[in-house]
Design a protein around this nucleic acid. Structure first.
Length: 679
RNA sequence: GGGGCUGUAGCUCAGUUGGUUAGAGCUGGGGACUCAUAAUCCCUAGGUCGCGGGUUCAAGUCCUGCCAGCCCUACCA
């Protein structure tokens, strides 16, 4: 077999938050693929790094009163600890804030300049004179220029209008509360349109992308002229200063993917390898694993940059969907926003690796972690079928050892060898669910063999010792085959096997020949059943963690300042101003979905007696209609009715939260009656 | 509104280039065994393959229309 040289990466996690189960969908699937390739005898290096630059890091470091370097160093430690906990085995873990990365950024930059692809344009942007920084749209709030609503986001208003932050009336910086001023800033743009022909071809030919991704790009980007990409940010910015444009920094998404190469270089230096061997060599494969949210950075900009700078293009960009838990988006309040660290306290990481593998397909689909399904699958498959096979012959085998010749097993082992090719093909094409399915079919065939042979009867008859040895030899070799096939997913199980039989598993091909004439050590329990209670504890702790997040342990009521930062307090008003708003207690008497609307529920609210109001509320993602009926809510009763596509909305239901599924309706303590005014 | 993906047994999914009575695992029901982590084994139930057209000797599989779900995008709050 020809040995392939394969370089694999996962997306670089951003250094402003801990690793959670959603991230792990990616790192686990990449790790499985890399381990599989190595087991098959290929050269495969798996590289990753922290993504460390940008405004968010700068602001956070500022808020925490420490340097950016300090922040990213501690974040990198915690990321690497979490990854190690899940058995993610990087050949090297770097940082985008490295000397190597800086140098490579210059190299890419020069190439883009030389290719005549960099354009300079002055744009007018809001600037916070107090924080001394330019403000991205999301850091500005103010009054909507179209409808006059106060405290609206920098790029769009609750009234539905979109605009530029420069059009906002009375804008405020969310960083300092200061009034931003308009300031000219020169930005540098990469003219991607120049590479259009190349990109169109690269995207649609050569199987670099899943077909649905190629279609998506074709429909969304390639139909129109490719817009210039703004790759510079004026000072202050945490990142690398652009050498030929002092006072300007490369935008974080410029230097992040270059981090793949910089990390390779660090690895090369440590291992006496040449970078060109990996990144300028047509015999090397480059595989990026990423989530669907960062598709266009990796499928448009990145290939464009690589092409221009003369590096290898990705052989394949593998794109996956998001994680849902029990069919819903991860939610902090429901305790399903589970940090890697929290999971590790309660549950064996091998189980998550197995479960993800059993659900992953080559398509860009969201993966659902149903907690009941999770425990059931782990317990029936891994414990009941796989490990049980070894467990049930463990004691006998310790006495008999393995036979010199492989006994007649009715063709089971040979079947397993045949299946091995299919399983390998499934791993290769990232169809892990298929691989797992085939492996479990083998396990399903193995247990009846032991059952029908009845080794426990042989054990009672000294004359049948050879038969007993034969049964053990078969059972252990079938188990061994399973373990080898599962090794990319659950390497720890292979290690346990190796200790037991004193045989290291280093190659996929070991599955083709049975282990014979070997001593068998004492069998130790390999996996415990997954307890529902542990899952419950994990959820409970995740809920608490959310409430206590980043709080001072000495104080029980230290809440994050994030909400206030996101949305600062509005300008002062008089009591008369407030009294204009007529808030009323109302009872939800009916609630239903609006078929054509994505976010709206249609509510009928009763103000007591025969007074009712029809209100459309953007809470579909957060509430089920049936859960609302009967509840008391607080409504704005004198709001001018608004005609919507779906009907007339005669008021507004009050709620807090950023939106989407994070919406929390205001309630009222017991005793309040519909129609009563809120004073 | 535009684009994409999906829709097969209660649940999770297989169904190869269209070819005989549509499959598996789990769950459910009945039985057996005791080597094994209340594990295992045997038997069994259960499907108008989202719906309607069309192509074909033959369609879960191809074409088309519709419906539903999810995602992206736009609009709407």
């Amino acid at each position: 077999m020809m040995q392939r040289n394969i370089l694999v990466t996962s997306a670089l996690p951003y250094a402003n938050g801990p690793i959670h189960l959603g991230h792990l969908v990616e790192y686990i699937q990449t790790d499985i693929w890399a381990r599989f390739q190595r087991l098959r005898g290929h050269r495969c290096i798996y590289l990753c790094a922290d993504d460390t630059h940008g405004t968010a890091i700068m602001i956070r470091a500022r808020n925490e009163g420490r340097s950016e370097e300090d922040l990213i160093a501690s974040m990198s430690d915690s990321h690497q600890r979490d990854f190690a906990g899940f058995g993610i085995e990087f050949d090297h873990y770097g940082s985008t804030n490295s000397a190597e990365n800086k140098e490579l950024c210059s190299l890419f930059w020069t190439a883009l300049r030389n290719a005549g692809m960099v354009a300079e344009r002055t744009i007018e942007q809001l600037y916070d004179p107090q924080a001394e920084t330019f403000l991205a749209d999301r850091f500005v709030r103010g009054t909507c220029p179209k409808c006059g609503l106060t405290d609206q986001a920098g790029d769009n208003c609750n009234c539905g209008h979109t605009y530029s932050p420069t059009e906002l009336i009375n804008p405020k910086s969310t960083l300092s509360g200061a009034t931003p001023v308009l300031k000219n800033a020169t930005h540098l743009f990469v003219e991607l349109e120049q590479l259009r022909q190349f990109l169109v071809q690269w995207i649609q030919e050569g199987d670099h992308l899943q077909s649905e991704v190629a279609n998506y790009l074709k429909g969304h980007f390639l139909n129109d002229e490719l817009r210039d990409w703004d790759v510079s940010r004026p000072t202050p910015y945490f990142g690398f200063e652009i050498p030929d444009a002092p006072g300007n920094y490369w935008y974080v998404w410029f230097d992040a993917p270059i981090g793949y190469i910089a990390t390779t270089q660090q690895w090369c230096e440590a291992n006496n390898e040449s970078l060109d061997q990996w990144w300028k060599n047509e015999n090397t494969e480059i595989h990026h694993f990423i989530g669907k949210d960062i598709t266009y950075f990796h499928t448009l900009f990145w290939p464009g940059m690589l092409k221009t700078a003369g590096f290898n293009l990705p052989t394949k960009v593998h794109i996956h969907g998001f994680l849902t838990i029990n069919g819903e988006k991860m939610s902090k309040s429901k305790g399903t926003f589970i940090a890697a660290e929290t999971y590790l306290k309660y549950i064996n990481p091998a189980y998550l690796r197995y479960f993800y593998a059993s659900k992953l397909t080559p398509r860009v689909e969201d993966l659902d972690l149903g907690l009941d399904e999770f425990s059931q699958k782990v317990n029936t498959d891994l414990v009941g079928k796989v490990v049980n096979l070894a467990s049930r012959v463990g004691k006998f085998a310790q006495e008999t050892g393995l036979a010199e010749q492989y006994p007649d097993d009715g063709g089971l082992f040979t079947e397993g060898v045949k299946a091995g090719d299919e399983i390998a093909a499934a791993y290769e094409s990232k169809d892990y669910s298929k691989a797992i399915r085939r492996i479990m079919e083998l396990a399903d065939a193995a247990n009846p063999f032991v059952e029908h042979a009845k080794p426990w009867e042989m054990k009672k008859d000294p004359d049948r010792k050879d038969e007993l040895q034969a049964v053990c030899t078969v059972a252990i070799n079938l188990f061994r085959q399973l373990i080898i096939y599962l090794k990319p997913v659950i390497p720890t199980l292979a290690e346990q096997y190796s200790q037991w039989l004193n045989e290291p598993i280093t190659s996929w091909d070991q599955s083709k020949n049975p282990l014979l004439a070997a001593k068998v050590g004492k069998f130790n329990r390999m996996l415990d059943r997954l307890q529902i209670e542990d899952l419950e504890k994990m959820i409970e702790e995740s809920k608490n963690l959310d409430q206590a997040i980043e709080s001072d342990p000495d104080s029980s009521y230290v809440d994050s300042d994030q909400p206030l930062n996101d949305e600062p307090i509005s300008e002062e008003i008089s009591i008369e101003d407030f009294s204009k708003v007529d808030l009323r207690v109302a009872r939800v008497i009916s609630a239903e979905h609006v078929p054509e609307a994505n976010k709206l529920l249609k509510l009928q609210l009763s103000l007591g007696g025969s007074e009712t109001r029809q209100v459309f509320a953007g809470i579909k993602a957060a509430y089920q209609p049936e859960d609302l009926v009967g509840r008391l809510v607080i409504m704005v009763a004198n709001l001018k009715p608004r005609k919507m596509r779906f009907g007339l909305s005669e008021g507004m239901v009050t709620a807090a939260g950023p939106g989407g599924s994070e919406v929390f309706i205001l309630g009222v303590d017991e005793g309040a009656l519909p129609g009563q005014r809120v004073h």
